[in-house]
Simulated scan of single mutants.
Amino acid sequence: MSKATPATRALESAGVAFTLHTYDYDPDAESIGLQAASALGEDPARVLKTLMAVVDGKPVCVIVPSNQEVSMKKLAIAAGGKSAQMMKPPEAERLTGFKVGGISPFGQRKAVRTVLERSALAHDQVYLNGGQRGLQVRVRPADVRDVLTAVVADVIA
Score class of each variant (00 low, 15 high):
140 R>Q: 14
19 T>D: 14
94 R>Q: 14
36 A>G: 04
4 A>Y: 10
148 L>A: 04
139 V>G: 12
12 E>I: 08
56 D>F: 02
117 E>T: 05
111 A>D: 05
33 G>E: 12
69 E>Q: 15
30 E>N: 07
67 N>D: 13
141 P>W: 09
132 Q>G: 05
67 N>M: 12
26 D>M: 06
48 L>I: 05
18 F>H: 10
20 L>G: 11
125 Q>W: 15
152 V>T: 10
51 L>G: 02
23 Y>C: 08
110 K>L: 07
136 Q>D: 10
134 G>Q: 04
83 S>R: 15
72 M>I: 02
71 S>D: 09
30 E>P: 06
70 V>C: 08
132 Q>H: 13
115 V>Y: 01
80 G>K: 02
153 A>T: 03
9 R>N: 15
27 P>G: 01
59 P>Y: 00
54 V>H: 00
57 G>F: 07
149 T>E: 15
74 K>F: 02
60 V>G: 02
79 A>G: 00
36 A>S: 06
70 V>L: 04
113 R>Y: 02
67 N>F: 04
16 V>C: 10
17 A>N: 14
117 E>Y: 08
132 Q>C: 07
130 G>A: 08
59 P>T: 01
13 S>Y: 12
115 V>H: 03
52 M>K: 02
3 K>V: 09
3 K>W: 14
12 E>Q: 14
126 V>T: 09
143 D>P: 14
149 T>W: 06
49 K>T: 00
8 T>N: 10
147 V>W: 05
124 D>P: 04
148 L>M: 11
68 Q>D: 09
